[in-house]
Amino acid sequence: MFAVALIVLRETLEAALIVSIVLAASIGIAGRGRWIAGGVLGGVAGSLTVAVFAAAIAESFAGNGQEILNAGVLGLAVCMLAWHNIWMASHAREMKRDANALGQAVASGARPLVALTLITGAAVLREGSETVLFLFGVTATSQEPASALILGGFLGLAGGGLLGAALYFGLLRIPVRRLFSVMGVLVLFLAAGLAAQSVSFLVQADLLPSLGETLWDTSFILDEATLPGKIFHTLLGYVARPSGMQLLAWVGTVVAIAVPTHLIGRRPLAIAAVAAAGLLCIASPSQAADAPATPQTFAGRTSR
């Protein structure tokens, strides 16, 4: 039972942390709750579907279907986080001014509501399908009664939710005036870490070079297999033994988001930078995986 709880906790932690960051980062956007809940529900439904078709997915794309699906889902999340961050920066002034009138703070411009749904949906789908497969397997093989296993699953889920809630309420304690800049930095590192995960799957599928299998090894300081390691892995993109390609993706994403976010006050420069980031977003993960429709909407909306 506790073994099941621990593994479910580990698998759901990433999604829980991402959902709480998205919740905190979207404070002031009317209707965010519905869109985020929609993403979570969509992610759960998607996880069940992916788990049922796991074997067929694994066999597609010459045995690389799973890697391409994971890389695509993560790439989509990165693009949506980038869009959200740049959009928030461009509306920071209105948001701060209207912070006391939460709910109707943002009435104009392209609202990143779809982004909220897609980010949470992708986060839940990514680890959710693995959790479902694990639970299928455990009920088939374990000696323990099903009730103990189900209880274990719920305990793990509750643990993940609790850690997510702790992060969310911790973030809420930050004064609204500073919350936007703190969230900007958090979302930036979150996106960079997910981008590094995404390219790692493409390296595994042999669609990208590794650029050096292991650049350094800090697993003796902090191992990603431990709970703190996993939290740092999700929030900052910490990898104890990074490959060259992972480092490149991490740094590239930080630059591609931070530069336009920083320049956003200076309009003409910012538009050029946002367009460049959009192009980069389309070019990198979608090359192998993404459905082209999403990145295009992204580029179309931000350049408005």
Partner: peptide, 8 residues
């Protein structure tokens, strides 16, 4: 973790 692989 040392070979950067994960596959279900």
């Amino acid at each position: 973790k040392s070979m950067h692989r994960e596959k279900v």
